[in-house]
């Protein structure tokens, strides 16, 4: 289990680094935008609210280490300040609204893209140089080169506006209230389809290429030659012997790429007005809501670190060599 402990240590360190960055960046910025922010809010917020916001950011007027301590103390109490865009809601409450939707959209599309891309990569490597292998990768590279949100806009234009077969925005129909009824779940799925498809289209090529090159390496290994020599069926060699080994570096890459794909999926949310963190992010940027921006940065970082740790647990399960160590 030493492997998992080491990874956990890395994530704790990364969590601390992002908390600290969150503290430092407003103070390092030239022109003191934080003060400017407080000055601008003076008209908008009541004096108590402004004081609370200063507190939460650690702008207490004391020396830096005291400010840092005050900031951390508020953070660990779950106080990220008040949102300006959604005043008087607390940032934590605003974030809570969007977290589930982002997890649903990003989670489902990343898993589908990874599974599909890996499968395509396995097949392409197995039939290297064949028709499938020569046509699909360039096509998917081209698709993947478009900005995620651009593909999202095109899908929205095509299927939403022109063909009018799928909903244009939001996570479920306005006429429904969240419940576990069939009509609500169906509506959620219907609203998920287009944004998820655009994320899958944009990211599947990357997974395919990395799985393909990992497979090509594995196919040259002696244990694959042995599997052929043993007279096993091609499907068994391809998946049980080759793909299972080729998957390992890709699972590590999955954790690393998660943050990157998430960036794209946040922008996709904006196109569909999908009520997740990305949608909140654009609201925050437009109304210069610094507390909300920073809150989003922290929650998303924590979520990505947690997801990375889950991927590590999966890795240990997949690779017996990491278990003893």
């Amino acid at each position: 289990m030493r492997y998992l402990l080491r990874q956990l240590g890395l994530y704790i360190l990364a969590a601390w680094a992002s908390l600290t960055l969150n503290f430092i960046v407003p103070r390092l910025a030239p022109g003191d935008p934080a003060s400017a922010m407080f000055a601008r809010y003076k008209g908008q917020l009541q004096p108590e609210a402004l004081a609370a916001l200063r507190e939460a950011f650690g702008f207490t007027g004391g020396p830096l280490h005291e400010q840092y301590a005050a900031y951390l103390a508020h953070l660990f109490r779950g106080d990220l300040g008040v949102s300006v865009a959604y005043f008087p809601a607390k940032v934590t409450d605003v974030l809570a609204m969007g977290l589930g939707w982002t997890a649903l959209l990003t989670g489902s599309s990343v898993v589908v893209a990874f599974a599909l891309g890996s499968l395509l990569g396995v097949i392409a490597a197995w039939r290297r140089g064949g028709a499938f292998d020569t046509t699909l990768p360039p096509l998917l590279v081209f698709l993947g080169a478009f900005p995620y949100f651009w593909l999202a806009m095109m899908l929205l234009y095509g299927f939403g506006f022109t063909l009018d077969v799928l909903p244009l925005r939001h996570a479920y129909a306005d006429t429904l209230a969240p419940s576990l009824s069939f009509s609500f779940v169906a509506s959620v799925a219907e609203h998920l389809l287009l944004p998820a498809t655009s994320i899958v289209l944009a990211s599947v090529g990357g997974w395919m290429l990395s799985m393909r090159s990992s497979m090509i390496g594995v196919l040259a290994e002696d244990y694959v030659t042995m599997a052929h020599a043993k007279g096993l069926s091609p499907l068994r060699i391809m998946f049980h012997y080759a793909a299972r080994n080729a998957l390992l570096p890709n699972v590590t890459g999955f954790g690393m790429a998660l943050g990157f794909v998430l960036g794209g999926s946040l922008l996709t949310e904006i196109v569909f007005s999908y009520p997740g963190q990305g949608y909140l992010l654009v609201q925050a940027v437009r109304s210069q809501d610094y507390p909300l921006m920073q809150g989003i940065f922290l929650t998303i970082t924590m979520a990505v670190l947690a997801a990375n740790f889950l991927v590590d647990v999966l890795y240990v399960w997949l690779d017996p060599r990491t278990r003893g160590r």
């Binding site: 244990y223 030659t225 049980h240 080994n245 017996p320």
Partner: peptide
């Protein structure tokens, strides 16, 4: 070298 002749994950 049977290290490589046997799949490490099985």
């Amino acid at each position: 070298s049977a290290m490589n002749a046997l799949s490490p994950v099985l």
